[in-house]
């Protein structure tokens, strides 16, 4: 059973899988309610949820905001890998402290202060995931452009997504070359396992050299093509910027989204007071 499970996991966790997840994350969810929103509105929304939680200490308010960002993350249909990394990140930030405190004689009372920190981290992370992974890279970069980010940055974002799958495929083949032609140490004993892990890490590090050289070779064409397509020309032309930004449009949908978010947050703030009155 255990063997079957590990085999199953090994089947799934491959560079192919990573590549697939990256693509899914970037482009697999362009028909979700979040992806259809105007990027400028989303960026402003993000600004609020990325900053405000740090200044709050009320568990109820934070919990409310956490729920909201959890819902938007769900709506954005984020790739499972990203959520896994998120969970891992949150745990490594605070979760382990709780476990450690339990081991050293702590009890549930340690939970409350830790919960506040965890909720802050989680809310801010989920807000980032919603915006940066729910929007497709082009919309995101258009949004950034509107706020005055340099054109180069916004182009780099969408170009990175174009080049990432290619890089990963290249990496996969180079790693395969190492694996098939090299020989990994036996890993039956504990010492062998350690040597095996060291060997694998060494391989990954070594494959960066061929990877970089191959990519450099390929990018020559890309650079020339960009030149021919007038990319440099466009960077200095204000009219191009205007045309690009003319596709941005905030309407009813954005208003509804902003209103619901604001109302929810207002409720969250009102909640503790309301509870006090009632009790």
């Amino acid at each position: 059973m255990m063997e079957k499970l590990s085999e199953n996991i090994m089947d799934k966790v491959s560079i192919d899988f990573l590549r697939d997840q990256v693509l899914k994350n970037a482009y697999g969810n362009d028909d979700t309610p979040i992806a259809q929103l105007d990027p400028r509105v989303l960026l402003l929304w993000y600004l609020f949820f990325a900053l405000v939680p740090w200044f709050l200490n009320d568990v109820v308010v934070l919990m409310g905001m956490f729920v909201l960002t959890a819902i938007t993350t769900r709506l954005a249909r984020v790739a499972p890998l990203v959520l896994f990394v998120f969970a891992l990140g949150v745990f490594s930030q605070t979760g382990y402290m709780f476990v450690a405190s339990l081991l050293f004689g702590g009890d549930m009372s340690t939970l409350a202060p830790l919960l506040v920190l965890t909720l802050k981290v989680a809310t801010v992370s989920l807000a980032s995931i919603t915006v940066f992974s729910g929007l497709d890279p082009d919309k995101l970069s258009n949004g950034l452009l509107w706020f005055g980010c340099p054109e180069r940055l916004s182009f780099s974002i969408s170009f990175a997504y174009r080049i990432l799958p290619i890089l990963m495929e290249e990496m996969q083949n180079i790693l395969l070359s190492y694996r098939m032609r090299g020989r990994a140490p036996e890993h039956d004993t504990f010492g062998g396992k350690v040597r095996w892990v060291i060997y694998q890490v060494k391989t990954i590090v070594q494959s960066f050299y061929p990877l970089m050289l191959n990519t450099a070779k390929r990018s020559r064409t890309t650079v020339e093509a960009l030149e021919l397509k007038g990319y440099r020309y466009a960077a200095t032309n204000m009219k191009v910027l205007k045309i690009k930004l003319s596709s941005l449009h905030a309407g009813r949908r954005e208003a509804v989204f902003a209103f619901v978010s604001a109302a929810w947050v207002a409720c969250c703030f009102a909640c503790p007071a309301a509870l006090e009155v009632l009790l």
Partner: peptide
């Protein structure tokens, strides 16, 4: 180009086809 794949710089087909026209405003 001969290695035409490296010539494609945009993520979607229409984007790629219209990229140069956009750049020349």
């Amino acid at each position: 180009y001969q290695d035409f794949e490296n010539q494609l710089v945009r993520p979607t087909v229409l984007d790629e086809a219209s990229f140069s026209c956009l750049n020349y405003a």
